[in-house]
Amino acid sequence: MLLQQLVNGIIAGSVYALFALGFNLVLGAMNILNVAQGAVFTWSALVGFYLIKVYGLPFPLALLAAVAAGGLLNMLIEILVFRPLRNRGGSAMSTLVASIGVSMILISAAQTASDAQVERFPFGTLPEIQWSALSVRLTFTQAVVLVTTLATMIGTYLLLHRTRLGKAIRTMAFNERTAKMLGIPTESVARWTFFLSGALGGLAGVLLGLMFSTVHFLMGEPYVLKGFAAIVIGGFGSVIGVIVASIMIGLAEVFSTVIGVGAFRDVIIFGMLFMFLLFRPNGLFGKDEEVRP
């Protein structure tokens, strides 16, 4: 029972990590806190759902299409909103406010598109197989989620540390002006950073929609705040830190339900976030540098 909860918590937490990684990428490289990521998450889940339910696409194809949709949507937000804002010298505050506005537009559009219905992926989207060992039950869905998430995390890490794009993103995170002076095409790197971030958010959206078997227009909202918590607890800019923190959050949720204070799990998570901000603002794995203005 306890072991089972441990597994559930880790799997949920690892999906949160995908979402938070996308958040972290844009925050790190562009210094933008993109709240609209929650709406991108919702839209990807909706796209995945409709492709499977209405067009009968097989799951892997629908997943790919939904992830691409998430990436493109986020890229579009960058092109239509954040870039003009940057060119006009917007502050950190104005980018956050703009992303809140975009988020409201997209959520409202999702409400219209889905007719405010709570949907679920059709039965048999993935085969109903389960394995059990040591009193732990693992469903096929959970296995798919776990494998996809792990592969994506490793992929993201490799992309950031082994490719030219990754190097460019990390240089921009260090300092955008330096990146420009080194001849990095910052505008196109910014677009691709947003694409990547949206794709990660979109993947999280489809996987969570599948795992909890619900898709609706407000599904992204709680994950925005969880994403904040993961970034702060994990440490700004640390991939490993964000993953560890997300899994901690997943476990905290599951175990607060086990010990009977499930109603207060949000209070517990945000209490944790608050404590970290107050006593260790650089998070678990953050370097002791000055907090950026």
Binding site: L27, N31, L33, A92, M93, L96, L225, F228, A229, I231, V232, F270, L273, F274, L277, L278, P281, V291, R292, P293
Partner: peptide, 14 residues
């Protein structure tokens, strides 16, 4: 003690 985004996140989570 916090600045910018961190202050926003802290107050939002409150």
């Amino acid at each position: 003690r916090l600045k910018g985004h961190y202050l926003a996140i802290a107050t939002l989570s409150f």
